[in-house]
Design a protein around this nucleic acid. Sequence first.
DNA 1: TGTACATCAGTGAACGCGCGTTCACTGATGTAC
DNA 2: TGTACATCAGTGAACGCGCGTTCACTGATGTAC
Lengths: 224, 224
Amino acid sequence: MLEYLTLTSVTCSEKDWIMEKTITPEKRDSYHHGDLRSQLIEATRILVEEKGPDHFSVSEACRRAGVSSAAPYKHFKDKGEMLRAVALEGMKRQRVDLVRELEKYPAGSLDRIVAMGRVYVRFAVDEPGVFRLMFGLSEGHAEHSALVETGNNTFAVVQQEVARYRGSEAVAPEDAHKAFLLWSFVHGLSFLTIDGKLAEKKLDVDLEAVLADIALRVVGHPTD
Amino acid sequence: MLEYLTLTSVTCSEKDWIMEKTITPEKRDSYHHGDLRSQLIEATRILVEEKGPDHFSVSEACRRAGVSSAAPYKHFKDKGEMLRAVALEGMKRQRVDLVRELEKYPAGSLDRIVAMGRVYVRFAVDEPGVFRLMFGLSEGHAEHSALVETGNNTFAVVQQEVARYRGSEAVAPEDAHKAFLLWSFVHGLSFLTIDGKLAEKKLDVDLEAVLADIALRVVGHPTD
DNA sequence: TGTACATCAGTGAACGCGCGTTCACTGATGTAC
DNA sequence: TGTACATCAGTGAACGCGCGTTCACTGATGTAC
């Protein structure tokens, strides 16, 4: 699938750890675990990648973490809460990626607009399962305020950057509008990529070129 | 959710039938059914809307169609084939919508570009379940050639229209590129809408305005 | 028009399965004295 | 330092459930004569 999205970029993806990290079936030394909560989150994350958010099962996560199927309920209310924990971690990771990538370019530059798109699509490609979990329609997500706030916070950064590109620190309505256009675009591109539609339509897409193109079209010209 | 996407448009959505159509639990007159295949597809479609493609169950569809849970296997190989039948119907319906909407505007006009986006987003909003089924990653979809061909066919129309806007009948690489940009954009907008992200981010979007804006940005200026 | 027969759509019971969650429990750990 | 005890993370067995699919069957229908 991925051959259809060319990821030529200065920044190579540093997310190899994501998949190579395996949870060893837990030759545990003691009755107690020590760090089960985070091990369960990690097992859940891996499963979400392997099977997708809708085919994740608590039982399988327990098997992976080497723990009885009742154990998670000492740390999570229910299945949904495990998934939300993974989604939240994802949002934070995405946020960190974003800030780290932005730092590389001068404030107010078009490169920074492009960088934001790169981070978004990269995240989707590197962690499609978690990406779906973060942005798909999942019950209870909207009520998990930490999740919503982290997301809003990240989007605020995008708006901020658009304003800055215009030379302002304050976000005007037109900046918000353009930020939204950018979001829609990279969101669509991300899903088309991870759902294999680029491959299906035999579309060869050079990510950097497309991001630069769209950035110019959205933010490069004055509008409304 | 939908309050955040304003659908002001000449064309009111004509899809009310979609949800009001209920399958009566089948007071059947005879042992045989007559039209079970299409009734099952319809039951499947409704369930896909109600619960999402990943929470559809054969058993429930049978209950809705008033038929034993073994009955579908006289018409479909398995569960996946039922879903693919619904997806295919969806693709055809979308195709019909598209052609019908295009007819309303003069050949080569910007209105036609906007119309295509309108049809796409409208479809997603009217039938989010089927939309997800059509464009999400579902096992076996890529191997169902009728499905892929119908999709490719529809995308070819978009490319054609972009070329025509430029005044050509032949699709140049730049037309294909622009068609892809348009697709990414409306695809992202569709998902952001049906996944409730516009609501979450308190973004009020006027569909017609946004479509016109993006059409201009993508197709209104010469590029590469 | 009437009868024999082939067809095959739909039945209903059964299968094995893995799931999410509960429960009373156990045993390792840390703390108070 | 040593002992008693509270805490609570993890156990393992059990629960009821709905699922997808199979199977030998049944009975309505259409056709050939």
